[in-house]
Design a protein around this nucleic acid. Structure first.
Length: 198
DNA sequence: GGTGGGATTAGCT
DNA sequence: GCTAATCCCACCA
C-alpha cells in the first residue's frame, strides 16, 4: 500500500521524521529493489541558505517548487546524484533529502549496481543509495505515489521486513553543509547500523 | 585504524 | 574561478 496524498502534505520537518521507517520501492527494467528509510534531512524555505531553492528557481531546482511527493534528483560534486522528496507548500521549494536506507529486497541487484558486496556499504549515504536503487535524472519530476519509484507505508511490507518495527528518532545537525550548519534538521533511526554516520 | 586528496559539473561571484 | 546536501582509494600507522 503506497502512502496517501495527505502523507506528503504535512510540514517538511514533520515529513522528514515521518519518512523514517517507510519503504522506497523502485520497479526498474533490471528488477525490483526496496530499502527502508533510516536517515533524512529537511531543507526549508525560511532562513535556510543550504536549501537549493533559497535563491529562487533555476533549471536544476524547478521541480522543488511543484507539489509535495514529487521526486527531485540533482548532481553533486559533478559525479554523484542525491534523491529528495519535494515537500511543504507549492511554490516554496522545500524538500527532504534521503540520506540512508536499510537494504530490504533486491540486494543482489544493489550489489551489482554498486560493485560492492558489504551490506553496510550499499545504501549508507545519499549518493550510494541512489546508485544502489537505480535512481537517476529520469526520475526528476515523477510522482512518488504513482510512478515506478514509490514510497510505501511502514505497515504495508511486514512480509518482507522482518526487523524490529519499533524505533526512536534522533535529531542532529545536517551533514556536509557549511551554510545553516547549526540547524537541527537531520533525523535518523536511533541505533540503526545503516545510517551514513552515527 | 585514520587521514588527505581527486573526480567532475551546475551555479554563483 | 570557486564551491558544493559525496564517495573512494591510496597511503600511513
Amino acid at each position: 500500500m503506497h502512502v496517501s496524498k495527505r502523507f506528503f502534505g504535512t510540514t517538511t520537518t514533520q515529513l522528514a521524521a515521518d519518512l523514517l521507517g517507510s519503504f522506497l520501492v523502485h520497479d526498474s527494467p533490471e528488477g525490483q529493489t526496496i530499502g527502508r528509510i533510516v536517515e533524512t534531512e529537511a531543507y526549508l524555505y525560511h532562513d535556510d541558505p543550504a536549501c537549493h531553492a533559497s535563491r529562487g528557481m533555476t533549471k536544476r531546482n524547478e521541480v522543488m517548487f511543484g507539489p509535495p511527493g514529487t521526486t527531485y534528483v540533482y548532481l553533486i560534486y559533478g559525479m554523484y546524484h542525491c534523491f529528495n522528496v519535494v515537500s511543504g507548500k507549492i511554490g516554496e521549494g522545500e524538500a527532504v533529502l534521503i540520506r540512508a536506507l536499510e537494504p530490504v529486497s533486491g540486494i543482489p541487484l544493489m550489489e551489482q549496481r554498486r560493485r560492492r558486496t558489504k551490506l553496510l556499504d550499499l545504501c549508507s549515504g545519499p549518493g550510494k543509495l541512489v546508485h544502489a536503487m537505480g535512481i537517476g535524472p529520469e526520475h526528476i519530476g515523477s510522482c512518488l505515489r504513482t510512478s515506478n519509484l514509490s514510497i510505501y507505508k511502514a505497515s504495508s511490507l511486514q512480509r518482507l521486513y522482518r526487523g524490529n518495527r519499533d524505533f526512536e528518532i534522533t535529531c542532529t545537525t545536517r551533514i556536509g553543509i557549511t551554510k545553516a550548519a547549526d540547524l537541527p534538521l537531520r533525523f535518523y533511526i536511533k541505533g540503526s547500523e545503516f545510517v551514513s554516520r552515527p
